[in-house]
Design a protein around this nucleic acid. Structure first.
Length: 409
RNA sequence: GGGGAGGUUCCCGAGUGGUCAAAGGGAACAGACUGUAAAUCUGUCGGCGAAGCCUUCGGAGGUUCGAAUCCUCCCCUCCCCA
């Protein structure tokens, strides 16, 4: 089966320059690329669609290039944004690229050049302005650029000249990779459509070559929010920023309507299985969500972490104490409990409530639990008595947020 | 460079000397209902707290018994003209 069909079946394709041409191209080993911003040293879930797309490409024998936009990050892409991005230092960018690569290695194999990571700063930085204008700039029509959706939006609020040039630089990336690596397909989020097409055009004009564009749908959840945000903020792939437990929780809280879509996009389960799971209804759909959460966590954090997250979740949400250590745990001095500590202070200190006022409110509204029992008054004292033999206390805020406290000397 | 409009609590957005911790909406949080879903209803939504106190309306000063609201300077954004 051609990857193109796989991508299409699994819902990765929003737009393609020429479906038949891409299908033809992918019937033999090809090279494709996706650009990523090195604005952080970790991806978050929002980047998972392109990452999964690369995973599929590689598994079908295509060479993938991960392009780090070190050069373009120094300019800022206006696409889909309302503000100019902040500029970054080269050093910062390189450090970030390292972090991103480590995460990609869970999905993509960089051995034997089957995948490479490149930084466009390598060819953008040495560019000579006059030469660039003469060789590249001449192929671009300002009229056409202004018609692009991404620029049109920014025309309302103001568009700086450097941002305006982003399209040229990204097009030049594609041209460079075409010449240097034989790359003939660029993929990206649908907000990149204009830029990607411009690059394919440039290749045709400058080289007479054939190159294609493919974009992914920009995911919004069925509740209308942007993908990848939880109450704690963005959901990161980095376990230090988002623990495997929280990562798992994010997926299991998926809206019913998104389960099928997410299973096909974010797991590698066969489509037959995906269809079976998403056909489940009512409470049974939880099985599908559990599979989604488990598989997605396994891809990013490995089987062992996924297993732990699943066990912890099962234990906690079936009403038990969840002795497993993979639920968020926090150490506190045993001494603090000797004289007793007010419940509201404890909730504030653990971060389950952002301030003491919020902790009071939480308790007053009946949303605070200590070892599974509702806390009645915010002045209630929590003491050594509340600990189990291992010296732990389980706190819960609302329905889903748990923290386990373990006493240390 | 000239002219105009504007910067309010997470976001949008009222408020033009005291009744303002600041309307309304959204987001978010909690409760009820549920399936760790959605929808709905109720409540909460600056900090510390018993009352009450403290900090906030781009920044810095000033006027006043009293300022988000008036004055001065500065910073930033947008629009029109060049």
């Amino acid at each position: 089966m051609n990857v193109y069909d796989v991508l299409e079946e699994r819902g990765f394709i929003e737009q393609v320059s020429d479906g038949e041409a891409v299908q033809r191209m992918l019937s033999r080993p090809s090279t494709c690329y996706i650009g990523f911003d090195p604005t952080s040293d970790s991806f978050h879930i929002g980047s998972l669609v392109p990452i999964m797309a690369l995973t599929h490409m590689q598994r079908h024998g295509h060479k993938v290039i991960v392009l780090i936009g070190g050069g373009t990050a120094m300019i800022g892409d206006p696409s889909g944004r309302t503000e100019l991005r902040k500029l970054m230092t080269m050093k910062r960018i390189e450090a970030n690229a390292e972090g991103l690569k480590r995460q990609l290695e869970h999905f993509i194999d960089f051995e034997d050049d089957m995948a490479v990571m490149l930084n466009n700063a390598d060819w953008l930085m040495p560019l000579n302005f006059i030469e660039f204008l003469r060789d590249i700039g001449r192929h671009f029509s300002v009229n056409r650029m202004l018609a692009a959706e991404s620029y049109r939006q920014r025309m309302e609020s103001g568009l700086s000249f450097i941002e305006f040039n982003y399209m040229l630089l990204q097009s030049y990336d594609f041209l460079h990779l075409y010449r240097d690596k034989g790359c003939t397909l660029q993929m990206g989020g649908n907000d990149q459509w204009g830029n990607i097409l411009a690059g394919a055009d440039l290749i045709r004009r400058a080289e007479g070559g054939e190159a294609e564009a493919l974009t992914f749908p920009l995911l919004i959840t069925s509740t209308g929010t942007k993908m990848g945000k939880s109450e704690k903020g963005a959901v990161w792939l980095d376990p230090d920023r988002t623990t495997p437990y929280d990562y798992y929780q994010y997926w299991i809280n998926t809206d019913d309507r998104d389960v099928g879509r997410f299973l096909s996009l974010f797991t590698l389960l066969p489509m037959d299985e995906v269809r079976r799971l998403s056909a489940l209804e009512g409470a049974e759909l939880r099985e599908a969500k559990e599979t989604l959460a488990y598989e997605a966590t396994r891809l990013n954090h490995g089987g062992e972490e996924a297993e732990k997250a699943r066990n912890a979740a099962r234990a906690l949400f079936s009403g038990g104490m969840g002795g497993d250590s993979s639920i968020p745990t926090m150490e506190m001095k045993r001494d603090r409990f000797r004289g007793g500590i007010s419940a509201f202070e404890l909730f504030a200190d653990t971060g389950l409530a952002k301030s003491k006022g919020e902790a009071r409110r939480l308790i007053k509204q009946g949303g605070a639990y200590l070892n599974g029992e509702r806390v009645e008054s915010f002045e209630d004292l929590v003491t050594l008595e509340h600990m189990d033999e291992k010296g732990t206390i389980l706190l819960r805020a609302g329905k889903k947020k748990y923290i386990r406290i373990i006493a240390v000397d």
